[in-house]
Nucleic acid binder design. Structure first.
Lengths: 354, 354
DNA sequence: ATGAAAGCGCTAACAA
DNA sequence: TTGTTAGCGCTTTCAT
């Protein structure tokens, strides 16, 4: 479907096609964007000329004139570690089926980078912007609100939100895995999280922590002993920190890790030291990295439907863009408790879905 | 850094800034894009006004006038399975540091989709296009060559190429893992690949196969028994097929799998059937998915430096874009044999890097 | 170092 | 159903 005549001469324009057919440029424009408004014979001749000349609309001109870019901007923290890959794929799949393009940026978990990326997107007249999380630079939120650009925040539906949101409650997630560990009969829980500074920047992680702690509290257990890893995306380093922590706190019977990377790292290091899992120690992770099923024993975790989040985010955006102003909405896609071998089984069977 | 005045009124334009400062629009344009060509005092007043008015250039207008979009298009087969995530991250990191934006598309391994995405990118005046692999629709290659748009092909440097390339030889990759298995003393090799139809569409996979077969041949061994899995991205299904294959061919002492997903699936299913790995059977994978280190025993594989490929691809693109026409180049980033527990050790120590 | 004029290619708005 | 006019906001080009 690329134009058949990619000669070195400049690309054909609307006017070229119009001249070739003997109609006005406007008619050609209509034949392309609202075919029904052009008489069939005219349209056929136009489409033939389009094909023959290899005409491809210059979107920059269209965007300039109509202020509609058919670009959606997306910002995720990272594409490493397979955390957000599925989500971006979901967005991409939906957009490309609808004639939109995705401009993608990775913020590296930096609010400053996110802001720069959004600024660039606005300079490109992006029709909509999809962000990750609900924590943004202080200037960005009022700016986006005031700009009127439709915005979707993904992976978190906690308040305050900018506009639309697709995700789940990270508090609920932490609470659910906490309740599960309690239901398994664990009584001395430990917690491996990022540093306090990290949690300041990582609202989602902080919310998970709060949810977990709430679950422990409501069970009447002592507050979990807690250790911080310097980099929650460093599997090996985190595993060593967590295992040293357990060595110093042998009374702990189960460890919750802030994410699956830390969880897998901990599992490995524990096994390297000869500890039987889950006999000596239960280990669980939370969400994101889709690696919990690969290790042995499998890591009990909460699975997040990343692809679905991306898909719904894009669909919600397109709906807003076509149906005009819809009521602001937040969609909770939930999450799924996945019980695997790294923890013992619950004492009484309970629901594992949500 | 977003404009400080995101009022509901229309965004400020160059002319607004010019009026505010009392200079011509052209001077403002220069102050922004070639600051040195504007007198310091003038420039300072202009920048102050830019900030005050929250002026953000409309890239659509700039692109229309100058035919320079500062957009690079990128197409990868998928963002699932963490195969190309690092690569896209590498591209994104480099581009965003240089004022470029990435329009990303996922082709789903379909040449037709790839072509559509590229067509859209050209309609957006993309300054450059980064594709995955060297297999494209028959129309696309001459079209891109004729268009003069700088193109980088990633993950494969085999001929024929469109323009620039960053990757490695998939033939060499298959050959290297094949030679390694031979060096380990394996004599009855088996091979788990995609279907013949799959290999027709998947040139890179086919090249790996040829490399592997060449290694076996040069060692004077019998051609490997071969089995096809319907979907090489389906871990469980592939594992079952591979294990059934081994059950029917008990003489095979080592199995090479077309990718790490199939490799891990095979390892799992083998263990599920109670087979000791690597005692009963050596298992190895090839490249891509970055999951080989997670399983136990670790999967011997060839690691591909995905992030580096993305980084170099973007850098090469930017170099071409600024230095003008450079000689067409292909960069071989190589790959790395990673020996893990799923195969026995080589009989004589050999080099493991390349 | 700065400005004036023109126009990139398209589509909104109005006219016929 | 089709055409005319004008202009989106910027940068190229040429002039001062």
């Amino acid at each position: 479907m690329p134009p058949s005549k990619p000669t070195s001469s400049a690309r054909a324009t609307l006017a070229d096609v119009a001249r070739h057919v003997g109609v006005s440029a406007m008619t050609v424009s209509r034949a392309i964007s609202q075919p029904d408004s052009v008489a069939k014979p005219t349209r056929d001749r136009i489409m033939a000329a389009v094909k023959k000349l290899g005409y491809l609309p210059n979107m920059a001109a269209g965007t300039l004139r109509s202020s509609q870019s058919f670009i959606i901007g997306g910002v995720v923290p990272t594409l490493g570690f397979s955390i957000f890959g599925d989500t971006v794929q979901g967005i991409s799949d939906v957009l490309n089926d609808s004639g939109y393009q995705l401009i993608l940026g990775c913020s590296g978990y930096s609010l400053e980078n996110e802001e720069k990326l959004v600024t660039a997107l606005i300079g490109r007249q992006a029709d909509g912007i999809i962000l990750t999380g609900t924590l943004h630079s202080p200037e960005l939120v009022p700016y986006l609100r005031g700009s009127g650009i439709p915005t979707v925040e993904m992976w978190d539906i906690s308040e305050p939100r900018i506009d639309m949101a697709v995700g789940f409650s990270n508090f609920d997630l932490g609470q659910e895995i906490g309740r599960h560990l309690v239901a398994c009969g664990y009584r001395r829980l430990g917690y491996v999280s990022g540093t306090p500074e990290h949690e300041k920047r990582e609202k989602r992680a902080a919310a998970r922590s709060r949810g977990f702690l709430a679950a422990v509290r409501e069970a009447g257990l002592a507050p979990p002993a807690r250790v911080s890893v310097p980099d929650p995306l460093d599997m090996e380093g985190s595993g060593v920190v967590a295992a040293d922590f357990i060595a110093a706190h042998p009374e702990i019977d189960a460890l919750l890790c802030i994410n699956e990377i830390v969880g897998v790292g901990t599992l490995y290091e524990a096994q390297r030291r000869g500890w039987k899992i889950p006999q000596k120690l239960g280990i669980a992770g939370m969400g994101d990295a889709n690696i919990a099923h690969l290790v042995h024993p499998g890591l009990t975790t909460i699975h997040i439907p990343g692809y679905k989040i991306g898909q719904l985010s894009a669909e919600m955006m397109l709906a807003r863009l076509s149906h005009g102003r819809v009521k602001k909405r937040a969609v909770d896609v939930g999450f799924e408790l996945v019980i695997r071998g790294s923890t013992r089984l619950p004492e009484k069977a309970g629901p594992a879905k949500r």
